[in-house]
């Protein structure tokens, strides 16, 4: 049970994010939902990398023992950077839309349809 706790948290956070994206109509809140999903994926990646008793893969003065593979940590860092770029871009889009349309509601952001 304890080992599955991070994965349960992943499922809960991802579900919250998806529900937010589907049910909220405020664009800012939808992007918050997207960020939640991103956090869930990051947590999932980090949780996958956990090895009981493993040590950080720093070779200088390393104590004896098994080192963890740092791939997932690198992936998480990369995804955080990508996430920052994406979120910044999305929020700036919402800013422009709010200025031009006078609303940040997805229900009214529908000049393109049909």
């Amino acid at each position: 049970m304890f080992y599955n706790l991070p994965f349960i948290a992943v499922a809960v956070i991802a579900a919250l994010g998806i529900v937010t994206m589907l049910l909220r109509q405020n664009l800012i809140k939808m992007i918050m939902g997207l960020s939640l999903i991103e956090s869930a994926v990051n947590l999932f990646l980090v949780a996958l990398g956990y090895r009981e008793g493993g040590i950080a893969p720093i070779f200088t003065n390393a104590p004896a023992g098994e080192m963890v593979m740092p791939t997932v940590q690198a992936m998480t860092l990369t995804n955080i950077v990508i996430g920052i770029a994406t979120t910044a871009m999305l929020l700036s889009f919402v800013m422009v839309i709010y200025r031009k349309y006078g609303t940040a509601n997805a229900q009214y952001m529908r000049k393109l349809r049909g």
Binding site: M21, L27, M30, I31, L34, I37, T86, M89, L90, F93, V94, V96, I97, R99, K100, Y101, M109, K111, L112
Partner: peptide, 18 residues
């Protein structure tokens, strides 16, 4: 383009990020 192109960009960006 009076915000319409940004609307398209936002839809594209949200879907492709997800």
């Amino acid at each position: 383009d009076r915000g319409v192109a940004v609307e398209a960009g936002l839809k594209y960006a949200v879907l492709s990020t997800l």
